[in-house]
Amino acid sequence: MGLVWWRLEMAAPAELEESLLWKLPLLGVTRVALQHPPEAPEQRQLLAWLPESDWPADQRQELERALAPLGEPFQVALPQVHWRRQADEDWSLSWKSHWRPDPVGERLLVLPAWLEVPPEQAGRLVIRIDPGSAFGTGSHPTTRLCLEALEALAGERTRAGRGADLEGLRVADLGCGSGILGLAALRLRAASVAAADTDPLAERATRQNAALNGLAPSALAVTTGSAEALLALLGGRPAELLLCNILAPVIEALIPWFGQLLSPGGVGLLSGLLVDQAPGLERDLAAAGWRVEGRVEQDRWGLLRIRSASDVA
């Protein structure tokens, strides 16, 4: 007889999605999927599969208690958790069935690794991702904001005659998660990506996703650590494009490093912040010599595009 499984089901509000995907693996729950129907992307549902033998009632209750604080920074309550007992569930096929190709912007396609490109999306730039790695699958508003901003920047450079897309740019990805932003930059013809994350699981996920996309280590280098580790990976040479999709308080703490990570004339894309956090972050950036040249919002989340204040607009 095969294993018996508990299937966890709960709503996944946009504010909590990334936090849940980060926290669950740390609590020993690695079989996780998200349902986000393209026709109703706001109705996300989180699913997870746990072996019954490893998760008796008291352990499941402890898991719920450990997840509850995730909503506090956003002043939302953790949605109700539902448990379904399933005999002989082939979870590996079950969770995969919930993922779909996800077009982003005008040109990008985030594709679960086991799926084929749909014929109607054949002209898009494909980013293959193993959603089992979590840490950023393209569905969260902040990730989508970054992907769309990368595409917009590529279009601006092409129209201005500065090369095709992001051609020639060295990219620094601080807080890389799954590596999805660096992969998108490379699909948009960036020369190379240096990526770092404080979580070693994110480093592993980024390496795995780079391999899924057929990339050599020289194209996407990744390490565990924060700004100092990223600067070392860059060989002390600042990049022309800085990506930073992290929560606002972390971005604020990292501002002193931006001058070493981003070259004069370079562009920074900062996301992970709530819209009401943007004014305070803009003040901190201005005080440190950075100019916000654009702000984009989606749901309650925002993205800031920055340059050095000394750069000519």
Results as ranks from 00 to 15, higher is better:
Thr143Glu: 08
Pro69Leu: 14
Leu147Asn: 01
Ala190Leu: 10
Pro69Ser: 11
Ile127Leu: 15
Asp90Lys: 03
Leu183Tyr: 09
Asp130Pro: 01
Cys176Gln: 07
Gly161Pro: 02
Pro112Cys: 14
Trp83His: 02
Leu174Met: 08
Ser178Thr: 08
Gly105Arg: 07
Leu153Val: 04
Gly71Glu: 07
Cys176Ile: 08
Pro73Gln: 13
Gly132Tyr: 01
Ala184Lys: 05
Ser178Leu: 04
Ser178Gln: 05
Arg124Pro: 05
Arg189Ser: 14
Leu63Cys: 06
Leu115Gln: 15
Ala152Trp: 14
Glu52Asp: 06
Arg100Trp: 06
Ala196Phe: 09
Gln86Lys: 08
Ser92Asp: 12
Asp173Ser: 01
Leu70Tyr: 07
Ala190Lys: 04
Val126Arg: 04
Asp197Ser: 12
Ala164Asn: 01
Val126Asn: 03
Arg124Cys: 08
Leu153Asp: 01
Leu70Trp: 11
Ala194Asn: 06
Leu108Phe: 07
Ser53Asp: 14
Leu67Val: 08
Arg85Trp: 08
Leu153Gly: 01
Ala185Phe: 13
Asp102Arg: 13
Thr143Val: 04
Arg187Pro: 02
Thr142Pro: 03
Pro103Ile: 15
Arg107Cys: 11
Glu72Tyr: 02
Ala66Tyr: 04
Leu181Gly: 04
Gly179Ser: 07
Asp54Ser: 14
Ala184Asp: 12
Leu147Pro: 00
Ala134Gly: 09
Leu166Asn: 03
Arg100Cys: 00
Ser192Leu: 11
